[in-house]
Measured scan of single mutants.
Amino acid sequence: MLEGKVKWSNSEKGFGFIEVEGQDDVFVHFSAIQGEGFKTLEEGQAVSFEIVEGNRGPQAANVTKEA
């Protein structure tokens, strides 16, 4: 699992980007967020995730919010 911080997200469009130190930003779709209820990410929020190869390149999977 990698750790990063949410660079920005748009809940209306359903995606955002995660900033990882020393690496390119990672695309995240809201379907990759683990948990119940409305899935949102806040700018600056710490997250853990895996990287998978998506249709348009690397993207985050199994995203969990850190406490």
Rank of each mutant, 00 (worst) to 15 (best):
M1F: 12
M1Q: 11
M1P: 10
M1S: 09
M1R: 15
M1Y: 11
M1D: 05
L2H: 11
L2I: 11
L2Q: 09
L2W: 11
E3V: 15
E3P: 08
E3Y: 15
E3Q: 15
E3N: 14
E3D: 09
E3M: 15
E3A: 14
G4R: 00
G4S: 00
G4K: 00
G4H: 01
K5C: 13
K5D: 04
K5T: 13
K5E: 05
K5S: 08
V6D: 04
K7Q: 04
K7N: 05
K7P: 05
K7W: 05
W8M: 02
W8S: 00
W8K: 01
W8H: 04
S9E: 05
S9C: 15
S9R: 08
S9D: 03
S9H: 10
S9K: 13
N10M: 06
N10V: 05
N10P: 03
N10S: 11
N10C: 11
S11P: 15
S11Q: 14
S11W: 13
S11N: 12
S11T: 13
S11V: 14
S11D: 08
S11H: 14
E12S: 12
E12R: 11
E12P: 06
E12W: 10
K13S: 07
K13G: 08
K13F: 08
K13A: 09
G14S: 10
G14L: 09
G14Y: 10
G14N: 10
G14K: 11
G14T: 13
F15E: 01
F15G: 01
F15D: 00
G16R: 00
G16D: 01
G16M: 04
G16P: 00
G16Q: 00
G16C: 05
F17W: 07
F17D: 00
F17V: 03
I18T: 02
I18Q: 00
I18V: 03
I18E: 01
E19R: 12
E19C: 13
E19M: 11
E19H: 10
E19Y: 10
E19K: 12
E19W: 10
E19D: 05
V20T: 06
V20N: 02
V20K: 02
V20E: 00
V20R: 07
V20H: 03
E21T: 11
E21Q: 11
E21K: 12
E21P: 13
E21H: 11
E21R: 10
G22T: 04
G22E: 04
Q23K: 10
Q23C: 12
Q23N: 09
Q23A: 11
Q23S: 10
Q23E: 08
D24K: 14
D24V: 11
D24T: 09
D24Q: 12
D24I: 11
D25W: 06
D25K: 03
D25E: 04
D25Y: 05
D25F: 05
V26Q: 01
V26D: 00
V26M: 03
V26S: 00
F27E: 01
F27K: 03
F27S: 02
F27A: 02
F27Q: 01
F27R: 01
V28Q: 01
V28D: 02
V28E: 02
V28P: 02
V28I: 08
H29Q: 04
H29M: 06
H29A: 07
H29T: 04
H29G: 04
F30C: 06
F30W: 10
F30L: 05
F30S: 03
F30T: 03
F30V: 06
F30A: 04
S31T: 10
S31G: 07
S31D: 05
S31V: 04
S31E: 04
S31C: 09
A32C: 07
I33Q: 02
I33D: 02
I33G: 04
Q34E: 09
Q34L: 14
Q34R: 11
Q34H: 09
Q34P: 06
Q34T: 13
G35W: 10
G35K: 04
G35L: 05
G35T: 09
G35C: 10
E36M: 10
E36H: 11
G37R: 06
G37M: 07
G37I: 07
G37N: 07
G37Y: 07
F38V: 13
F38T: 13
F38P: 15
F38L: 13
K39H: 10
K39A: 10
K39C: 12
K39Y: 08
K39G: 09
K39V: 09
K39D: 09
T40W: 13
T40P: 04
T40R: 09
T40Q: 09
L41R: 01
L41Y: 04
L41N: 01
L41M: 06
L41F: 06
L41I: 07
L41K: 00
E42R: 13
E42H: 13
E43K: 15
E43G: 08
E43F: 13
E43M: 14
E43P: 15
G44W: 05
G44P: 00
Q45F: 05
Q45V: 10
Q45E: 13
Q45N: 07
Q45S: 09
Q45D: 15
Q45A: 09
A46M: 14
A46E: 09
A46N: 12
A46G: 10
A46V: 14
A46T: 14
A46H: 14
V47L: 06
V47Q: 02
V47I: 06
S48I: 13
S48W: 15
F49N: 01
F49I: 02
F49G: 03
F49H: 00
F49E: 02
F49V: 01
F49C: 03
F49R: 00
E50D: 08
E50F: 13
E50T: 14
E50C: 14
E50P: 00
I51G: 01
I51N: 00
I51L: 11
I51F: 03
V52G: 03
V52E: 06
V52R: 08
V52A: 07
E53M: 15
E53H: 13
E53K: 10
E53I: 15
E53N: 12
E53F: 14
G54D: 06
G54M: 06
N55M: 14
N55V: 14
N55P: 15
N55A: 14
N55S: 14
N55Y: 15
N55T: 13
N55R: 13
R56K: 11
R56D: 06
R56A: 07
G57S: 05
G57W: 04
G57H: 03
G57V: 01
G57Y: 03
G57E: 02
P58I: 08
P58T: 07
P58G: 03
Q59N: 05
Q59S: 06
Q59P: 04
Q59L: 06
Q59E: 12
A60P: 01
A60T: 02
A60K: 00
A61G: 07
A61Y: 10
A61E: 07
A61F: 09
A61M: 11
N62Q: 07
N62A: 06
N62C: 11
V63A: 03
V63D: 02
T64P: 01
T64K: 14
T64A: 08
T64H: 14
T64W: 15
T64Q: 12
K65R: 09
K65H: 10
K65F: 14
K65I: 15
E66H: 15
E66L: 15
E66K: 15
E66N: 14
E66M: 15
A67Q: 12
A67L: 13
A67I: 13
A67H: 13
A67F: 12
A67V: 13
